[in-house]
Design a binder for these strands. Sequence first.
DNA 1: TAGGACCCATGAGCTGGTTTCATGAAGAGC
DNA 2: GCTCTTCATGAAACCAGCTCATGGGTCCTA
Lengths: 293, 293
Amino acid sequence: MKSELNDLAAFAVVATERSFTRAAARLGVTQSALSHTIRNLERRLELQLLARTTKSVAPTSAGAALLKSLSPALEQIDRALNEVRTARDRPTGRLRLAVSKSAALSVLLPKLPAFAAAYPEVVLDVSTCTGQVDLVGGGFDAGIQLEEFIQKDMIAARVTPELRLAAVASPGYFAARSLPLNPRDLSAHNCIGLRLPGGPYRWEFEKGGVPVTITVTGPLVVDDTSLVIQGALTGLGIGLAYEDQVAGYIDQGKLVRVLEDWSPSFPGFFIYYPGRRHQSAALSALIRALRVT
Amino acid sequence: MKSELNDLAAFAVVATERSFTRAAARLGVTQSALSHTIRNLERRLELQLLARTTKSVAPTSAGAALLKSLSPALEQIDRALNEVRTARDRPTGRLRLAVSKSAALSVLLPKLPAFAAAYPEVVLDVSTCTGQVDLVGGGFDAGIQLEEFIQKDMIAARVTPELRLAAVASPGYFAARSLPLNPRDLSAHNCIGLRLPGGPYRWEFEKGGVPVTITVTGPLVVDDTSLVIQGALTGLGIGLAYEDQVAGYIDQGKLVRVLEDWSPSFPGFFIYYPGRRHQSAALSALIRALRVT
DNA sequence: TAGGACCCATGAGCTGGTTTCATGAAGAGC
DNA sequence: GCTCTTCATGAAACCAGCTCATGGGTCCTA
């Protein structure tokens, strides 16, 4: 790590100030310290950068040439640091998010208009992802997923209350069939399957603390929950979807809910991110906007 | 001098390598040291720059933005450093010289063709100066002057052997006048005066260890020794010039030398520069090319 | 699934570089 | 001539940064 960057910065100040004393004051160190620093720098470079007599200090040709390329670079770094500091203090810049499709629809979109209005300088760069994502490896700042898909050692904040799944089908589908009263009855039904990255989703139910897992069959398997709902609406069979996504259809009578007493609740969606310390203002703002206690 | 430039450089390496271990190897330090460094940097900036899990490291959005402005600046600094190192090892670049007119003519010019051929990458930026010059204050790398005009605490190297002055006039001038045999005889002659920055030059002679200083008068006073010679050639009177500058005219019979036994020798010209350590290759080359033992 | 390889984090402790202090030399100004 | 300012230098103190040792965690493999 033995880099001479700090010494170069010191040199730049001395060269522009043309005085060790003034430069030392600007840098907040002793003149003596600066003298040693420059001396060491010159010793390591084996080249004199500053010519000095008792009455004046000026860069040599070599020093002047160095300063010419050095100072714009140092200024650029200074600008970059200031930008970073504003990113810390004022919500600005891009946030890369890994979000499940469902969460994008039910969590993010509803709150986006207010968020965008409040923080016009923030750009949300959303990638829809299914299953577990390597947040850091993918270069994401945060993710919104079901709790079970959240990687270890992440900080998570709840963004939905507990959720429940609802098994639904169209009234037309049930016209010729009996309603299932027990999850095991589903084996006699057409069920719309959901494919997860790890394989087909096995439907999970629970009643009185007794969990039941069912492998379902049917005419359609998809990898997107909104397609499940569409399939149910068209009468293909029974689909499993988030309660609040189908509540409207149930109210309108377009879907019929079954096995409600068997549907367990589960923790719902969380926004999560690596590292608790020092988030950018943009990320903090997003978490504040989305989180529910 | 508490600058975080070194830490920023370390951050840049980690961010591009996307690994603390590899970055540490590249920087020649322990992975542990890097971890501490980045941690401190983030603490001081109060902003997380690198997201890390046990299996991957990647810049956060803020870190990526910082890196984007940082890396070109760091590369530029690196290039600048390399240029400086070549300036040390290979004669390159500009040398700013403060040279008296006479020295430029009699010392520099004769050796310039060979020097320029040997070191095509060196540019000599010559300012002709009379009298004592503030080398450092003027931003010069070196000067060539008479010994008496060289500032204190300078390193000096002889570039001419001892010089002598010659009092000369045209044969036509002496046709109607008697030759001076003693400096005091000059008061009866037309003498071409030389004006130095500090006032008129009072002609100095010496014989047998006895110095004599004469204030001369005449129809012409100039501030440039080549004009003195021109004046003498046109028969205006007696001029004082460096022996070797008028030797040719004397051989050709265009000038006549007088008071030769009274003309003292003096140390001649020196190239001088501030600071003995770590000269640039260009300056070393120039000194080597000019110096005489 | 147990073990090994690898990676990052953390705390303690030490080391060496950086800073300060004190002093000296040299010029500028009054 | 005296004082003030500036830069250089050596010695000593201090502290930042490094290393060492260790721990937790993931991934790969047998």
